[in-house]
Design a protein around this nucleic acid. Structure first.
Lengths: 250, 250
DNA sequence: CGCGAGTTTGAATCGACTCAATATACGTGG
DNA sequence: CCACGTATATTGAGTCGATTCAAACTCGCG
């Protein structure tokens, strides 16, 4: 998070726009007719490329745009009462900035964990298109509602779970996300430090490491650095959906 | 949560509508001109009165309306993978249903914890008014964004806190909410069982009770049943903003 | 090659949980 | 209105899990 800036990436085919985007079915463009999608792609700013540690926007910066993650991984940090929280981890397909619509300033800082590419949706222009395309507005609202409920639930679940169960929840969420974007659900690189995973899950880095070690000993997965290979999704899911504690007898 | 239904409350002055509502400054009506507020009050359905345990809507029921809490207290429960989570506690001034806009069905069940009165905003009609009043749309979006970020942060904070700190966070949030609605911030009835507080905070009922007892011994507050009297907000805030754990030395 | 950030491992402490038993409040029907 | 039964709260003892702290280790990068 040392330098800020938005560097245009020359490598993306820009002429084709949203129509040919591999994320189409997940982006807000979902369910739009081709001619409607074209309308959308006209307002999409040229793709942004961020290098590791580069900042997309800072807390308190004026709100201008939503961003869709095409590739890479970003983190969102919020400072409140001089306490820093890791409030989100963004993977491909996520829409960043939904928590800022209607506000003047971004409530948090978003930065890249490794090289990332994003689509920028200037909100003013998006608003204009939504005026003409109510379907698009509903689509965005649905995305927002879903993520609100999703996030609330996943955090709520974590609250009453042990470290083991929290890690399982986290890894499965990441796996699921990659899966739906067409990547492997069992083998991925997650460029997040143990420390960051810890503050995202409310654990210490030591506990995160130890838990991964335990998993590895049980042949649930293999980790080398930040490269994860899930070996037994079924057992991980069992771990994630139990609280990890002894059953309270009725 | 035994019986369902929406019973019209005869006791609210209905002719005056939003203009005279004591919540005006907090409801989405904020910042609207009088004539605009009138437009809004025309679509507000007659006030709803719910008795203790009555259900406002059930999970999977078709989405029809947003609701504003006028008085009383409600809880939101979500069942996912046969696990029941207490995902929200709604106090006066809250808008219920923001997590459902754009979706077909409510993602959770909301029921009254004691007698409650609510304003119903049928969403179809609200949408029509927002079409004519962009200001109102922005107002609603701002509310949604704010609550998204707020909720995310407060849950995130809880994750890395001890039972003592979690309880302090919770009580202060409630206190703040009542305060902003014009009630006393230090003396209120919170008709939520220890068990429900526990599942909301990710603690057991025993821990909730013990923590309250500890607080009482330290003259931080007085509790009798579900009646709370906060005696030292400053010290409570200190408790809430520290994690409750020993400081890790740098 | 060496430095530093990130990670791993171990030992001791403290906190929250489970379980069980008791006490209190509350609503219902006699 | 009181007595009862159920739901909710309190209290205590023992266990298990996550934290703190310290130290050694590994990897990537200049």
């Amino acid at each position: 998070m040392t330098s800020r800036g938005k560097y245009v990436y020359g490598g993306l085919e820009s002429g084709t726009g949203c129509l040919s985007c591999y994320l189409n079915a997940l982006c807000i463009a979902e369910e739009l007719l081709p001619e409607e999608t074209l309308l959308l792609s006209e307002i999409v700013a040229p793709p942004i490329r961020l290098e590791k540690r580069q900042v997309l926007y800072r807390q308190e910066a004026p709100f201008t745009s939503l961003y869709v993650v095409r590739t890479g991984c970003l983190k969102q940090e919020t400072v409140v009462e001089s306490e820093q929280l890791l409030t989100a981890i963004w993977l491909p397909g996520s829409i960043i900035g939904c928590d800022t619509i209607g506000l003047e300033h971004y409530p948090s800082t978003v930065s890249a964990l490794d090289t990332a590419t994003l689509c920028e949706l200037p909100f003013e222009r998006l608003e204009a298109v939504m005026q003409r395309l109510p379907k698009l507005r509903r689509r965005l609202q649905r995305t927002i509602s879903r993520s609100m409920q999703q996030e609330r639930m996943s955090l709520q679940r974590l609250l009453s779970r042990t470290a083991e169960a929290r890690m399982a929840c986290f890894l499965l969420a990441v796996s699921d996300c990659f899966h739906r974007r067409g990547y492997s659900p069992t083998h991925f690189r997650l460029p997040v430090s143990r420390n960051d995973i810890g503050s995202y899950l409310g654990l210490t880095q030591e506990t995160v490491g130890r838990t991964l070690a335990t998993y590895q000993a049980q042949r649930l997965l293999r980790v080398t650095g930040r490269d994860y290979q899930l070996l037994d999704l079924v057992r991980l899911e069992r771990l994630a959906s139990s609280t990890g504690r002894r059953q309270k007898r009725p």
